[in-house]
């Protein structure tokens, strides 16, 4: 195993063991969305609210594998304090990363994609540990759940 893979794994395990922003926001204006992956039983609960300055507050909860739970924790860190539009862009960036990654996993050659992995900071760790296409759903579960929450937030 390379040193980089070790580092990635440590990041994922750290967020899995000590999830950031864990819990639920209980303010009356908060929206609550549940995400579920019936294939492996991963569950994510995202609660979102807007601060007076228009930035997002977020908490996450749930249970499941290390990839799904660490992804939720990493997501909460990067989303917290963002504007809604900014948050949407981050979701798009992350999902693009996983899509490109999935395509490269499924094609037989190992050519590197042109994606700027360093711009993602710690989130890049997820790309580093997701070795099988089937687990990309675990990694994106929290993000899809967040998107639903953002929709609900903008509806209200």
């Amino acid at each position: 195993m390379t040193g980089l893979e070790d580092l990635y794994r440590e990041i994922v395990l750290d967020h899995y063991r000590n999830p950031r922003n864990k819990g639920e926001i209980n303010t009356p204006t908060a929206v609550r969305v549940e995400g579920f992956n019936p294939l492996c039983g991963d569950e994510i609960v995202v609660t979102l609210d807007l601060n007076p300055d228009g930035t997002l507050n977020i908490k996450i909860d749930g249970r499941g594998c290390s990839i799904s739970q660490s992804s939720a924790s990493l997501m909460s860190e990067t989303i917290k304090g963002s504007q809604i539009k900014e948050a949407r862009n981050k979701v798009t960036t992350f999902k693009n990363m996983m899509t490109i990654h999935e395509n490269s996993l499924e094609s037989s050659d190992d050519n590197e994609t042109s994606f700027d992995i360093e711009s993602l900071g710690e989130l890049a760790a997820l790309q580093g540990v997701v070795k099988f296409p089937v687990r990309i759903k675990c990694a994106t579960l929290a993000w899809n759940t967040l998107l639903e929450g953002l929709d609900d937030l903008e509806k209200d």
């Binding site: 294939l39 492996c40 039983g41 991963d42 594998c65 290390s66 990839i67 099988f132 687990r135 675990c138």
Partner: peptide, 21 residues
């Protein structure tokens, strides 16, 4: 520990097990 995590770590030792429903 989620079975997917178990199976993926075991895979690094070329141990093939089934994880899932």
């Amino acid at each position: 520990i989620h079975p997917h995590d178990i199976a993926q770590v075991l895979d690094e030792y070329s141990v093939c097990v089934r994880a899932g429903h």
